[in-house]
Simulated assay, not measured.
Amino acid sequence: MRPGPAALPKFSIIIPVKPEGDVRALSALSQATYPEELFEVLVAYGRQPSVQRNVAARDAKGEILYFLDDDSLVDPGFLERAASHYREPKVAAVGGPSLTPATDSPLQRAIGIAFTSPVGGGGVRNRYRKSGSARYSNDSELILCNLSFRRDIFLTHEGLDERLYPNEENELMDRLQREGHLLVHDPELAIVRSQRKSYRAYVRQMYGYGRGRGEQTLISGKLKPVSLVPSLFLVYILLLPFLAGGIFLLPLLCYLAVVAAASVAGSIAGRDLALLPRLLLVFPTLHLVYGAGVLRGLARPRYRGGKQTHWEVEIRRVKAFA
């Protein structure tokens, strides 16, 4: 039996977007099957996503904050599914993966395949694929373009750390877990969201992800050794011309073999040979550029560069509670 409206929580859906940017997510939200009187949609316009989300959270009126990106395409029943997990009082956050649409270009699909591969996405690959059933998890499986929090807990913890972007949600979830709160990853809460359209945009994305991880490491004081592996590999590549002896080439040859195998496997899984040359580029780019970003974040975090500029945030309530 479906719970009545009185048994369901109220949701505030929050979408950060650049000034006057297009909000593609609204088209899918218009098909949501959750009771009209139990959810609102706030679009936060600005240039600092962490700040935009925090400002909107303070203005929100729902019990649950559901963060989406401007291009996150949800399933009509996603709020019902998320609500079911919040029946457990210790659950502080619920989210699902971000899937690459089949209609994306070969480059975009190659990026998506790399993210879901053990060679590319590694321990965070479940952010980008449906795998298993709903479970208690951690920040390695949750992603901010499809993530909800209890509003009271979010605000009690002062929301997202505005010094960070990206990785601001990871830092918050780390804090929540240390206090004993539960996080839920539900593969059936998947959204559909396209990957970067150009190689240049992908490079910027990977560099930003790495830099955010480095900055998060400094802020939290908690080092995840696996996050340093790409950086160590980058250092090895840079030092290789100065290392004498063929034995030093062995790690590189092994790496190239692994990348080649993963690229072939990805193109077969994607049923498109056009993916192969792109995967051969995408995998090394992911590792090396991410590694460079981590080093930059550790060495020169942006939040130590002086006073931060806070751009104006405009909140538009495009759908109020009915």
Rank of each mutant, 00 (worst) to 15 (best):
A92W: 01
P187G: 07
K18F: 14
G123C: 08
A260V: 13
E188M: 11
G77N: 09
P16C: 02
Y128C: 05
L107K: 05
T285D: 09
P166K: 04
F154R: 00
W311V: 03
E20S: 14
G62K: 00
S148W: 03
R204P: 05
L42Q: 00
P241G: 08
A244F: 15
K90D: 15
L240R: 13
G306S: 09
L252S: 09
P230F: 09
E141Q: 14
E168I: 05
V289G: 04
L240T: 13
G246N: 12
L250T: 13
K307R: 13
H185G: 02
L240M: 13
Q195N: 14
S148V: 08
S140Q: 12
N170G: 15
G120P: 10
R163D: 06
N167K: 09
S263G: 09
L155Q: 04
V51A: 09
R151W: 01
S98P: 06
P97K: 03
V235C: 11
K222W: 15
A261M: 12
P277Y: 09
R135I: 11
S137V: 07
V264E: 04
G21K: 02
T33M: 02
F67G: 00
L223R: 09
H181M: 04
G159K: 01
R304K: 14
S194M: 08
F321A: 02
R193V: 05
G245Y: 09
S84L: 10
H157K: 11
G121T: 11
A44S: 14
I153Y: 02
P89Q: 06
V94R: 02
R163F: 06
E312F: 07
R47W: 10
S267I: 03
L298K: 06
K224W: 11
R178T: 15
E188Y: 11
I111L: 08
L164C: 05
A261S: 14
G132R: 10
R150C: 02
E215T: 06
R278S: 11
R278V: 11
V229P: 01
G293H: 04
T309A: 13
L65S: 00
Q48W: 05
A6Y: 07
Q108V: 05
A265L: 14
R200H: 14
V235N: 06
P16M: 01
N170M: 13
E158Y: 13
L176S: 02
G214D: 04
T156D: 12
P241S: 06
L26T: 01
P251W: 03
E36T: 01
L99I: 13
E171T: 08
Y255M: 06
S98A: 15
L286H: 14
L107H: 12
R278K: 15
V91S: 06
